[in-house]
Amino acid sequence: MDPFVVLVLCLSCLLLLSIWRQSSGRGKLPPGPTPLPVIGNILQIDIKDVSKSLTNLSKIYGPVFTLYFGLERMVVLHGYEVVKEALIDLGEEFSGRGHFPLAERANRGFGIVFSNGKRWKEIRRFSLMTLRNFGMGKRSIEDRVQEEARCLVEELRKTKASPCDPTFILGCAPCNVICSIIFQKRFDYKDQQFLNLMEKLNENIRIVSTPWIQICNNFPTIIDYFPGTHNKLLKNLAFMESDILEKVKEHQESMDINNPRDFIDCFLIKMEKEKQNQQSEFTIENLVITAADLLGAGTETTSTTLRYALLLLLKHPEVTAKVQEEIERVIGRNRSPCMQDRGHMPYTDAVVHEVQRYIDLIPTSLPHAVTCDVKFRNYLIPKGTTILTSLTSVLHDNKEFPNPEMFDPRHFLDEGGNFKKSNYFMPFSAGKRICVGEGLARMELFLFLTFILQNFNLKSLIDPKDLDTTPVVNGFASVPPFYQLCFIPV
């Protein structure tokens, strides 16, 4: 058959498939802009700032609406009420993970971030239990974070109060905490193996944040037939998995079943207990991918939040002064901060919360999916439909947070200066898919920041009023603009 005829037939089939998918069930789905064949609503979305586009569309179609990214149908949730109703009140029905062709290629359905069903539930339950087990290797997770915080302070001392970009050092600290939990080992910041790991993690975040990856996920045929950065992403992930597998083999040879040292040991012990169960989800494949998931999810998000926190503290020296006064009063100079201190430091706690609220790190979270046909607000959402959640619409709700575009710790303080919780605080998402490392991340943010401010004054290279804190939105995360500062020993 003539190649031209084959091409026309293929394009015609794709067009018909697109029209059929977009028209099927439209009477039951939430409203939304009319999609174009094949490309859907992509032309109506700013790929570099999806969150802003969703906010604009919500003003037209309401808090629940339908979009098509290519052939992929998505239902968008915008605003606290619908997000709570879906992710919390109907948590089980909305607990699936959205379709990610690239991740599915890399992870093969294993791990904790992109798995679904029984596998996801069992691996998540085990990971939560293990991360909360403060007795691994007779050292609590808090001990590990405190140790890394001391190392971080010593690295900052080496800058000798000269101007520096904190990106690298602030990236090393949370990565080392995860390494300590998974591998029972922290690395020197100049260790070549550690630097290679950091390089792969950072490069992957840069790649994932590009519009090209959005295109690959919406048109998965590209993955096999086109060159691009997605190939580098898959190569980096394969490198990390190979490295983790080597460490798993080392653990198998040296493990003491009665004295687990780290996450890998705990997983291997669980595998041993379930070795007679042919349906067990505790396999080497799941261990390797879960460890890679924890490394990827637990490094860049925390380091970016820390980097943004220091920029905001530079911009608002009056806030920094209040935090340091609270540190001096509650902790002093002669001991290290600990998590028990947080309950006695409402202002510092409010500042950490406000940093996370203000920066809105992951504006749309990772997409969910419905696990069955769901009736939601008089609409029928078919099983498997991807759910896109606007966390921006919750964290920047102007009824809950007056002047949401302003950095103001009073958003989390009552009139008496006591810490005030808010149900709208969802930087880790909400419901059954809430970030498994939430507790660890909150511990790291509090301890790293208090250790830094206990030991250093922060000095800006320019007038604080002239510092730009506008986030650089890159399609996946909101990151701070480049800046330098000086760490002046107190």
Rank of each mutant, 00 (worst) to 15 (best):
E354I: 02
T66I: 05
E104G: 06
L395H: 10
T348S: 06
I213Y: 10
P101T: 09
G27V: 14
A161R: 10
L245E: 10
F425T: 02
L29M: 15
N258Q: 13
R97E: 04
L54E: 02
L233G: 05
D463N: 07
F412E: 00
C338Y: 06
R139M: 11
V6Y: 15
K420T: 08
P489R: 03
L485E: 01
E250C: 14
R307H: 07
L152C: 04
R132P: 07
F446V: 02
E93T: 12
R26L: 12
F412V: 00
L234H: 06
Q340M: 04
E203Q: 10
E415K: 12
P101L: 02
F446K: 03
E93H: 11
L43W: 13
I222L: 15
Y225C: 11
K315G: 00
C10P: 05
T301R: 07
S336T: 15
R186E: 03
D188N: 13
F263A: 03
A149Q: 00
I387A: 03
I244S: 02
I387M: 03
T320E: 13
Q324G: 08
L201C: 05
T34S: 11
G228D: 04
P337F: 01
S254Q: 07
W212N: 05
Q278G: 14
L395P: 03
P174C: 08
Q340F: 09
C175K: 03
P363G: 04
V352E: 00
Q184A: 14
I244G: 01
V355Q: 00
P480F: 03
I327R: 00
R377N: 06
T364R: 08
F239E: 14
N418P: 03
G475S: 15
Q278L: 13
D188S: 11
R333L: 10
T305P: 01
I331N: 00
I244N: 02
G96Y: 09
G40W: 00
M129S: 14
L43M: 05
K232Y: 07
F487E: 02
T34F: 09
F407T: 00
V319Y: 09
D89Q: 05
F94A: 02
E400L: 04
C175F: 11
I327S: 01
G137T: 15
A350M: 01
V355P: 00
V177T: 05
